[in-house]
């Protein structure tokens, strides 16, 4: 908590003069003491914490595209995804379905089991440990959050150059080719979550806003246990337990981005 307090004060330094509290802030920063009279910021008490959030999707539990709908709908609704966009060129997708040879183009054997070949798989941002999109961004508008490894977007900062879209090997990013607000279903809105504006890139945020208040991501909640979520670097996490017991694959692992979304096939 001490460090977050300092961080806020450092930030506050930008406008401290304007706030008229500069001397007090400086004195506080210098003394490093505990002064209850100064404002500070912290994580919520119920916030879930991890070194690197990760996801295991047990695809054995899903049999048809219909089985995937609850998760996709939960996400769309939770994040005000403009699903009414009919022009597929302009689609916004955070989590969606793809056939095996699209989701795993380098792993599609010539003769796949019939079940796998025609099944739908959930695909989303992989929240890579070495994200190439973050490397490409010229403003740090997309960044890997140090506290929990989520690859996030700062929509306030994005200039819409779309370099991250070229850099992402998973097609996980969407661009707002027009104002998305007209395309959000009226009765399927989450009023407590912002929409986006035209001209910025967006993608799955691993439900950072839900983790902050102690909830698991919307798709995990809607999956009835078929998607397991947890800390990749906690050897006792549910995710690690599942990874220990099951053979899993990841999308385009050979590119070295280290995706954090695993699939049990």
């Amino acid at each position: 908590m001490e460090s977050s307090r300092r961080r806020f004060l450092k930030l506050a330094g930008i406008s401290a003069v304007g706030l008229g509290t500069a001397p007090a802030l400086n004195a506080f920063a210098a003394s490093g003491g505990h002064d209850a009279a100064q404002p500070y910021v912290k994580k919520g008490a119920r916030a879930l914490r991890a070194k690197q959030w990760a996801m295991v999707i047990d695809t054995r539990r899903f049999h048809s595209a219909k089985d995937l709908e609850p998760m996709i709908e939960a996400c769309n609704k939770s994040h005000n995804i403009p699903t009414k966009i009919t022009n597929t060129d302009h689609e916004i997708k955070w989590i969606w379905e793809a056939e095996f040879h699209h989701a795993f183009p380098t792993k599609a054997s010539k003769f796949l089991s019939e079940e796998i070949e025609h099944k739908s798989f959930l695909v989303l941002c992989n929240h890579c440990e070495n994200p190439s999109c973050v490397r490409a961004c010229p403003t740090k508008a997309t960044f890997k959050r140090e506290s929990d490894g989520i690859v996030l977007m700062d929509f306030h900062r994005c200039i819409g150059c779309r370099f991250c879209m070229a850099a992402c090997p998973f097609g996980a990013r969407s661009f707002n080719f027009r104002d998305p607000r007209d395309f959000i279903p009226e009765d399927d809105k989450n009023l407590e979550f912002p929409t986006r504006m035209k001209g910025v890139v967006e993608k799955c945020n691993f439900c950072a806003e839900r983790l902050a208040v102690g909830k698991e991501p919307a798709c995990v909640e809607a999956s009835d246990g078929a998607i397991i979520f947890g800390d990749l670097y906690d050897p006792h996490s549910h995710v690690r337990e599942v990874l220990k017991e099951n053979y899993t694959i990841r999308r385009k692992q050979q590119l070295g981005t280290e995706p954090s979304v695993y699939y049990i096939v």
Binding site: V134, R135, A136, C137, P138, T139, K140, A141, R157, C158, I159, G160, C161, R162, F163, F175, N176, K198, G199, V200, V201
Partner: peptide
């Protein structure tokens, strides 16, 4: 480059938050 940007008014973010990791 400018006409290609989605949010051209924010172009100076590239100088405000210089990111040497980006080839751009």
């Amino acid at each position: 480059v400018i006409v290609d940007l989605g949010q051209p008014t924010r172009i100076f973010n590239t100088l405000l938050y210089p990111s040497p990791n980006s080839i751009l």
